[in-house]
Structure formats: structure tokens, C-alpha cells
Nucleic acid binder design. Structure first.
Lengths: 292, 292
DNA sequence: AGATCTGATACCCGCCGGGTATTAGGCTCG
DNA sequence: CGAGCCTAATACCCGGCGGGTATCAGATCT
């Protein structure tokens, strides 16, 4: 019927995230009245109440929650359209590979070497981002392919190829009694009173309650471990945790972690295909590429 | 930086599909000059040439092809946002299940019965569409969940759960010599001179070359088989092919077909979850729900 | 009760999307 | 070889709508 405009979606997302018309307007670089009007118009067009206005700001209705989620993915898709189109016009476009800083270092290096050795292979540009950001970079077109980890990362909506499977270790301060152990169990590490698990921010920027320290980046967490304030369980190959003050102890019953390559469906550019070929050659051929 | 508007994307898609500014403008309900201007603006914003104008219309550049694909998915995402939001506001919203007409009839009936028997289960509305259309219905929000078939359907970008695996049969005219066979092989059915394989339209509406008849719908194909003009290979349970004039012959070496439920990632509504529970109960529990 | 938040309303203006008329460039065909 | 046409592009005008400022209205807290 009547299609929404991305401007309307951007405005709604701003309001839904700020839950405050004034701040949302400021963030958007417009005045508050036009914003109010735009949201009212949007509600009228959809025939749906999106926000419960209150003198203390606004709260999302159930439909509002749905639209927030859908609008984000739609806006990402629009951004991806623009970015990928620009990139397609660039004659010497490099393939952008995104991954978490410090993760799967060894494997990544081998993959990059393999691609570089392939005469017909693409130029690869590596983009590092914080934990959980890879999916968004793929969705909005900032990256072509990602190195991700199951079950850590959310793989919904991407095609993937498994590349490597490994077990996990606990990273503990070198000074802690656990550091001398041969191995530990999940139950043990999750119940160490003086080393509470760190808390990551939720999507809205707030932190869950709990005894552990608040962290926003891997570097912060690494330093907190070195300071003897927390511990964590991660794949054995992670390289951001190899300080002298860190000790890795195998966790016997932690789930195995699969390192994999992920890319947007339908995005079968020749460059991605070449990278996948290199990856397959790397690990000896067996790739399970059935998407779902 | 500067986000595109859905209007621009709609305009571009129209031109890219028609490859003719005049017809595209007519389809959009606007005049030709504003359309030309809009496309020029779009090209200027992206800094990319999208179309090679020629006196006989227009042709897509490489970047244009990329934008056409990306714009379609982006527009679907925007439509989905509107539709799902409207639906979320509907208190007694039924779950829309889309499937190909005639496919997996038995299983679908069992699934619907199972959901109806579940006191807490959702209302389910069944939407039938032609072959290959399910994915689009899911993407643009017209449906919540689809019954699809691997490897027939394109599952890229969806979460899925396998429900049933079956072998395939060849549907041949009852009057044909092959109809009396106990079983056949793929090589045999693909090389029957008087029963050439039917040709389906491509995305742009044109047909590939070949000796077989052109078809657009399952019904057309069913009738053509009954008339002794073609044959086809399909899953054994398909019910659109049980005319008296049809005979099903097992194909020994055809790949097995998996019937599955597919839904958009992140769309974990309670209703979909309830449907999946019913499906799991149906087949006795084992579901492999790892998305990628 | 008044100060001070919040979002909603009123009103005006300038830009931009859309319309009509016309131009410009090739192809076809007599 | 020029007339006619079919294409997209340009020129120009207009109206609607998106955005601005000023103001109102309800609620809460002091």
C-alpha cells in the first residue's frame, strides 16, 4: 500500500531509543515539533499506536517494539544497498572482512596468507570491531564477510561455513589459586566469589545487576583479569588474553566453539567466493555450505 | 552518510526492471521527466553510474545490478516493517503460514491439526502461493512462517527446522511407456525425447530456450502432463499431481527432499514458537534449530 | 501556586518533488 | 539524404510538505 520512507523510520528509531522527543530531535538535528508531527503521521499511516506518551517521556507499545526491531533491520538493508552499490563501482574494491579484535588470530593470519597467495584472489581489508558488532557490519554493508564464533555470535540471517572447532579455556589472574589447576569445570569457575563474572552492557547501554565489574571492551576486560578482579571463559586460540598476568586453564565441560565465516545471503560476489575457496583449501576441503 | 529514501529505491527498481524510463514512469504513476531527474540525483548521491542510457532504452551497469538486488531486499524489509507492525497491533492476529499449493499436503494437515489441538496455540491462516514465491512473502512480511523444500527453495536468510524427508517420483502421463516401469533413473527421465522438461519463467519474466512447453503455474504443468506433453520429478507426497491421467514412478537416484519450516531470523514471536513446538511434537521431538 | 519539565498545536516559509512544454540526439524509412 | 519518431534530458512553474519559531497544555515537584 503506502510505503514508509526511511526518514520516518530513522525518526522513529531515534525516538524509540531515546524515549524522549527532545533528545531524539537533538540527535537527529531537527527541532522537536516536526519530530512529534512526524511520529503522529507515522502512527496515523500505520493505523497503530507506537508510543504511550507520558509526561516523563515516552514508552514503546508492543507494536512499537516490533517496529523498532523491524525498522533497524530495514534501515540496515537500505544502508547496505548504498554501500554495496558504491563499492561495486569501485574498480579495485577490496573485500572487507570483519572480526572481533584478538579472536582466532592464528586462523585469520593463515586465511589471509592463503588468499594473498592466490593469484586470482581478492584484496582483503581487515576491519576489527568490538564483540557483537560483526553482524551489524555485515547487515549494513560495511563488511562483506565476517569471522564469527558459534555459539557466541548471533548467526541469524547469514550464510556460513564452519572453519575450525576448538575447546575453551578459563582465563584467570596468574596470582589466583585456580591458576595452578590442570583443568576446571564450568561449575567451578562460575562460582568463584572473589572473581565474579564481568557484566556487558545491554543493547540500550544499561548494565544488568550483579557483583561483577562493568566492561564495554575486550581491552577493559583483559586489564580487569590482569588486575585479579574477574575471570572469563573463551576459546583457546584467543590472543587478546596472553598477558604475563593471565593464565589459561582448560575448561573440561565448556561447549566447543566453532569459528566460521559468515556473509549476507544473496551476496555471492566473486570475491567472497574466492575467499571461501581459499578457506576450504586451508582446512582441506570439507565445507558444509547448505545455508539453513 | 546520506541515507537513501525508499522512494528513490522504488523508482530505481522500476527503471531497472523496465529498462525504459517512459514505461517505468507510467508504472509508478508519475511523468517521465521527474523520474529521469530522480535517477540522476540518485546516481549523483551515490557517486556511481547506474544505467547506461541508450536511444533504445537503458542498460544496467555492474553497480546497477548490485543496487537492483540490494534495493529489492531493502524495500522488502521496509514493507515487512510496516506489515509486521500493523499485525502486532492486531489483538487476535492469526499466524500466517505460506506454502506452495499442493505441496506436502498430508504433513501440512497434520501440522494444522496439531496446532489446533494445542489449547495455547495460535490461530493459523494458510496462504497459498506459486512456486518460489514463499521467500518473498516471508521477507516482505506477508507471512510469518513458510513450509519450504530443500533443495528446491532458496533458504538463504531464514532460520529453518527440518520436518520431513522423502524421496522423489517422476510424474508421467498414464499413456506413456514409462508409466508401467517399476522405477526409473534421473538420466532416463531427463532424456525422453517426446516428454521434454517444462520451462519456468526467470525473474524477469522471460523463458529460457529449450524444447519443453512454457509454464507459469503448477496447474498449467499438471494439465500439460495429463495431456502427455511433459513430465516432471517431484517429492512423493505432492498432491497437486494425482489426476487419473498421472502416474508416479519412483526415481531411484533423485536427491531426497526435505520439507521444512522457515521463518525470518529475529522474528521469534510467541506464535511462531508455539507452531514450532507443535511441529516438534508432531515428528517426535528431534529438531535441529541451529540457524546457520 | 509557580517553576519546570514534558509533548502537542499553530502558523509561516522555503525547498523539493511533480507537472507540462520543449529540446537534443539517433535510428528508421521513404 | 532528410523527415519523422522515439528515446531521455532540460527548462520552468507550482503546490505540498518538511522544517523552523512561538506558544500552549498537562503533570510533577518544590
Amino acid at each position: 500500500m503506502d510505503d514508509l520512507e526511511t526518514r520516518e523510520l530513522r525518526y522513529f528509531v531515534a525516538v524509540a531509543e531515546e524515549l524522549h522527543f527532545g533528545r531524539a530531535a537533538e540527535r537527529l538535528g531537527i527541532a522537536q515539533p516536526p519530530l512529534s508531527r512526524a511520529i503522529v503521521q507515522l502512527e496515523r499511516r500505520l493505523g497503530v499506536r507506537l508510543l504511550d506518551r507520558d509526561r516523563r517521556g515516552a514508552a514503546l507499545t508492543e507494536a512499537g517494539h516490533v517496529l523498532l526491531r523491524e525498522a533497524r533491520t530495514a534501515l540496515d538493508a537500505v544502508s547496505a544497498a548504498a554501500r554495496r552499490t558504491r563499492r561495486a563501482a569501485n574498480p579495485d574494491r577490496p573485500l572487507v572482512l570483519v572480526t572481533k579484535a584478538g579472536a582466532s588470530h592464528e586462523l585469520l593470519r593463515a586465511l589471509l596468507d592463503a588468499v594473498a597467495a592466490d593469484p586470482g584472489g581478492p584484496q582483503v581489508e581487515v576491519l576489527l570491531c568490538e564483540v557483537g558488532e560483526q553482524a551489524r557490519r555485515l547487515r549494513d554493508g560495511q563488511a562483506d564477510v565476517a569471522v564469527m564464533h558459534h555459539p557466541y555470535d548471533d548467526l541469524a540471517g547469514f550464510d556460513t561455513v564452519d572453519v575450525h572447532v576448538e575447546s575453551q579455556v578459563a582465563i584467570v589472574p596468574a596470582t589466583h589459586p585456580l591458576a595452578v589447576r590442570e583443568s576446571v569445570t564450568l561449575a567451578e569457575v562460575s562460582a568463584v566469589p572473589d572473581l565474579p563474572i564481568a557484566r556487558w552492557p545491554r543493547l540500550d547501554g544499561t548494565y544488568p545487576d550483579g557483583p561483577g565489574p562493568e566492561v564495554r571492551t575486550q581491552s577493559q576486560l583483559a586489564q580487569l583479569v590482569a588486575l585479579g578482579r574477574t575471570l572469563l571463559v573463551i576459546p583457546a586460540s584467543s590472543r587478546a588474553w596472553q598477558w604475563p598476568e593471565h593464565v589459561a586453564v582448560p575448561v573440561t565441560d565448556a561447549p566447543e566453539v566453532t569459528t566460521l565465516l559468515a556473509w549476507p545471503p544473496h551476496g555471492h560476489s566473486p570475491a567472497v567466493a574466492a575467499l571461501l575457496r581459499s578457506a576450504a583449501r586451508l582446512r582441506g576441503g570439507s565445507v558444509a555450505d547448505r545455508p539453513a
